[in-house]
Design a protein around this nucleic acid. Sequence first.
DNA 1: CTCACTTCTTACTTAGGAGTAAGTTTACTG
DNA 2: CAGTAAACTTACTCCTAAGTAAGAAGTGAG
Lengths: 240, 240
Amino acid sequence: MSDKRRRRVPRQVREQQIIDMAVQVFAKRGYHPASVDEIAELAGISKPMVYLYLDSKEGLFLACLRREAERLATAFQKAARGVGSPEMRLWAGLSAFFAYVTEHRDSWVVLHRQTSELSEAITEEVARARRAVMAEVAGLVRDGIAEAAGPVRPGDEEADFVAHVLVGAADSLTDWMERHPGETPDRVARRLMNMVWVGMRNVLGGELWEPPEPPHAPEGPEAPDAPHAPDVPGPPSVEG
Amino acid sequence: MSDKRRRRVPRQVREQQIIDMAVQVFAKRGYHPASVDEIAELAGISKPMVYLYLDSKEGLFLACLRREAERLATAFQKAARGVGSPEMRLWAGLSAFFAYVTEHRDSWVVLHRQTSELSEAITEEVARARRAVMAEVAGLVRDGIAEAAGPVRPGDEEADFVAHVLVGAADSLTDWMERHPGETPDRVARRLMNMVWVGMRNVLGGELWEPPEPPHAPEGPEAPDAPHAPDVPGPPSVEG
DNA sequence: CTCACTTCTTACTTAGGAGTAAGTTTACTG
DNA sequence: CAGTAAACTTACTCCTAAGTAAGAAGTGAG
């Protein structure tokens, strides 16, 4: 804006700028519809620079993946380290994960849902199908809990939460099953029920799991309220 | 095979053949890298036919999505209907889901992971990152359980199962959070812990959830052993 | 100043694939 | 055996976007 002529910038810095913009564009458009020209322009640079520094479109995307995966992993690990019991560490890690993907939505989209590659109509179709499944599962959850525990009065929001857990877990277990051909769907479903059924009642009753007393550290130096979440780690300081 | 010259075939049938092949190709290559020419050729037909019947590449893909989503939903619903309590219905539905995606992998890939759109190297990178996360979470799970419940001896396979549930649920809750901006990551993480922590012990102890006695149906007409899972519904008989 | 090195640009080439115009063959119908 | 409608083909057009060749301009060292 202020500087009319574009300042020359050392390679390391320019690379990060390119990756910054690439993450945005890949998140918005998806891999194939994203054009290197657009990324270059947003980075205030011309296309051949991108090829000089990152080799190819694929190289560029790989660089994005690596950097963003590293940042997310770091956020998780940093949070999970330090606190005492594994239970606490897991909780802190999860919390940091959710915080990170909230802050850095683009990053998450690039790492995860490459569905945005598809056109509006197609994305909508996918979303609609998923929503239908969620609604169905949430309904079952609500009925089941109402029947089992009488007075709990599951709210819609909470049943929806449980439905997301179930559907997400089911998605993910699909991969797990590929590496365990001996397992039958029946057994997998039983295991999932086993793992989740009791907890559903708690969640739907509005209970919140509370971190237990840290067994080895009698009093922590941390603030008593928020665990670690707000201090989302910034990028591991790449720019000089 | 036997007929040398290509037999003419009515539109309804040909459409289904095209969609059959499209599902395969989209699953293998992903949306953009898939070429309509290839799909047409596999369907034993030339490209303009595809455009005549399905309008566009997008229309073709939408047709695939609709048909496959419908089949999967039907599989779930058919299984969930009939059995008594919601708990049972949920279990039967999950079981049918896992059975369906095992049988119809292409279908699932098209509905779910459009990541195969990306090149070999990129897919590998994504898979690697995910595996790393899984390993980390599985480690925490193992430690946590070992500490909490002394003698349970969580096997690698079981810890891995729990890790998949957690990571998949976390993935999915990302979407849920978007529609609940008031929720903090901290609260979401607590809820997830609440829902899952107790169940982890059971799963890692090797326990399997057993379907309870159906409260309203004293004796079902079904076979007592398998619920509904093996009778995966075939396509809802589209071809005339 | 000038040599050498890095940053950066303009202006291409090229390939692949979506979509179409126009015509051809098969098969049923009276 | 027409005649007609549906099934089907060949042979294109055209556009987008990846990737590159060749050189210009800023920058620091002697």
